[in-house]
Design a protein around this nucleic acid. Structure first.
Lengths: 188, 188
DNA sequence: CTATTTCATTCAACTAGTTTAAGAAACACT
DNA sequence: AGTGTTTCTTAAACTAGTTGAATGAAATAG
């Protein structure tokens, strides 16, 4: 996992370890919130075990934005970066173990060594470009197509996550997802 | 305009000027492409005059992602950052004047001074967070609501941009936008 | 200043996705 | 095991948004 992460950050082994040693363990029990909308997200969290999903709430409904599994960093970036209240929520799907670093400590690293500045830039660029791809995908493809892609490329999601959450992620009702699955099964 | 830009980049006056002096003028005539999908986007461009829009093409249709006006930086970021072919197009809506910097020169700056590294990070973070807001907006609001927001907050768009492009931006057909406008006008 | 193309509107028929409501299946808990 | 709870499926009625075709208005070219 460390290797996978440093592929993005491109830090020297020493600097990477120094970053890693500043991470502190936390845990979230299944079904519990880690961040609620309105709160300030002051920590960057890495999942070492478990799964978390992020969602907006609209009229009591959860509108799921994404899922995070082992090896994935998450935080509410607008809140973390700009110090504004978070507009979304993060909740554990399973019992989850984290390694976290506070905004202050991270800023400390940025100032301590330009390599961290660079790592921060690479991270933001990485997030930004993956974001673009997600947006493109959601514009381009119908729910059926997106479900097919998910089933093909993201077994981690389709196998670990209940269907009504997947429906919310695809931005459709569970009933409609059921209908899609039925049609796909018929055409086998 | 310079002030507005350096509010994001947070460079010292000297470093900002040094960056600014590396920019080179280019121009795009109305209706012409600046980047076509499949090409490599190797420059970051700032609009000093005119307007540009970016779009994906799907079965011959243009699906508009966004508009850029004076003071706005644009490039295909995934292509620019990761050196992959661009998946979208950029075309001038009006005769447009640019200031551009190549990826190589920008990387040169990053290496020359950590302040640029920091500016790059701030830029990527800024883009990333505005992206999130755009995505949230498009998930949350109906086309009618989004049109109302546009009409209220983005006169630059509704006044300068033809309606069929706005429809594409809202991800609806021009016919439906017409219908929306009619209904809104009736309820005045 | 007319001819041509491009843009905006209207309408009717259609399709994709929602809603409501009900039953079936899986799960959790003494 | 059996009972309550949560998840998944099915179906019918509905709504939002599309398609296609026709019409008029505006911009552009020659």
């Amino acid at each position: 996992m460390k290797d996978k992460i440093n592929k993005i950050l491109q830090l020297s082994p020493d600097l990477f370890n120094s970053f890693w040693n500043r991470l502190e363990p936390e845990s979230i029990p299944k079904g519990k919130y880690y961040i609620k909308e309105g709160q300030y997200s002051k920590k960057l969290a890495l999942i070492t075990k478990g799964a978390v999903y992020s969602f907006y709430s609209k009229e009591g409904e959860e509108i799921i934005e994404g899922f995070c599994f082992e090896g994935c960093f998450f935080t509410d970036y607008p809140s973390f970066i700009n110090g504004i209240p978070s507009k979304k929520n993060f909740k554990a799907i399973e019992d989850t173990e984290l390694l976290v670093i506070s905004k202050e400590k991270l800023d400390g690293l940025y100032q301590a060594n330009p390599s961290y500045e660079r790592a921060g830039r690479l991270m933001a660029e990485y997030l930004f470009t993956s974001w673009e791809m997600k947006l493109r995908d959601s514009i381009f493809s119908s729910p059926t197509e997106r479900y097919l892609q998910l089933a093909a490329n993201r077994k981690d999601i389709t196998q670990r996550i209940p269907q009504y959450l997947i429906a919310s992620y695809l931005n459709i009702t569970p009933q409609y997802l059921s209908q899609i699955r039925k049609k796909l099964a018929e055409n086998e």
